[in-house]
């Protein structure tokens, strides 16, 4: 009975100590990263190195089965931590997640270079370190074609824009248009023709 109880106590205090340790650890890592970011603090970086590098080596060895590659991952990851420390934003996530992301990206690019002989460093496109855009609620490309056309129309001379917009978007007839703009019908027709051929040219369609 006594034994069981002490086991339980040990387990309990053990986990409390663990989580306390990881809390102070978290704070330490944030402080070190901040010191590197703001004052390029070598001592703080050394602390970061001793915390992360052995773990990165261990993970990389088990993933790559190659000592020298694993060392390459460590060097490359820690170099990036130094170079990009100022880009880390503690309000957006934990520092461990940030370092993990760097390590994962470095490993991915090294593996891709090995397997496909490509040095395209695609990791930065697949997992951007700086997220550039919010997720759109709508599928992104539903209106692409229309947006394209609108952008191209903006490039036309003013009088051609006028006829295109009235004719296609307001669905006026050529006659109505001539009346509305107080122009001869022939002029409206030739402007439309001109505008259309320019549009096609801009949109990459060949006559």
């Amino acid at each position: 009975m006594q034994v069981v109880q002490s086991n339980v106590t040990n387990k309990f205090t053990g986990s409390v100590i663990n989580s306390m340790a990881s809390d102070t650890q978290h704070t330490d890592i944030c402080l070190w990263l901040d010191a590197v970011a703001t004052s390029r603090d070598k001592a703080a970086f050394t602390q970061l190195f001793h915390f992360f590098a052995p773990k990165i080596l261990h993970i990389s060895q088990s993933k790559l089965f190659d000592k020298s590659l694993a060392n390459e991952v460590v060097q490359e990851t820690m170099t990036n931590v130094w170079k990009k420390a100022h880009l880390f934003n503690s309000t957006k996530g934990a520092p461990t997640t940030w370092v993990f992301t760097i390590m994962r990206n470095v490993t991915f690019d090294i593996l891709r270079k090995l397997q496909s002989n490509k040095e395209d460093n695609l990791s930065e496109d697949i997992w951007p370190m700086i997220e550039d855009q919010a997720i759109e609620d709508e599928p992104f490309s539903d209106h692409i074609e229309q947006k394209n056309i609108l952008a191209v129309i903006d490039k036309l001379p003013k009088n051609q824009q006028e006829v295109i917009q009235a004719y296609y978007f307001m669905e006026m007839s050529q006659e109505q248009l001539a009346q509305h703009l107080d122009l001869p019908l022939g002029t409206v027709k030739s402007r439309l023709r001109l505008a259309l051929s320019k549009l096609k040219e801009h949109l990459g369609e060949k006559e």
Binding site: K55, T96, T97, V99, F100
Partner: peptide, 14 residues
Amino acid sequence: TKHEAKLSFSQTNV
């Protein structure tokens, strides 16, 4: 990602 990062860097026998 958060979870995998936590797992990766909580190893102690290194």
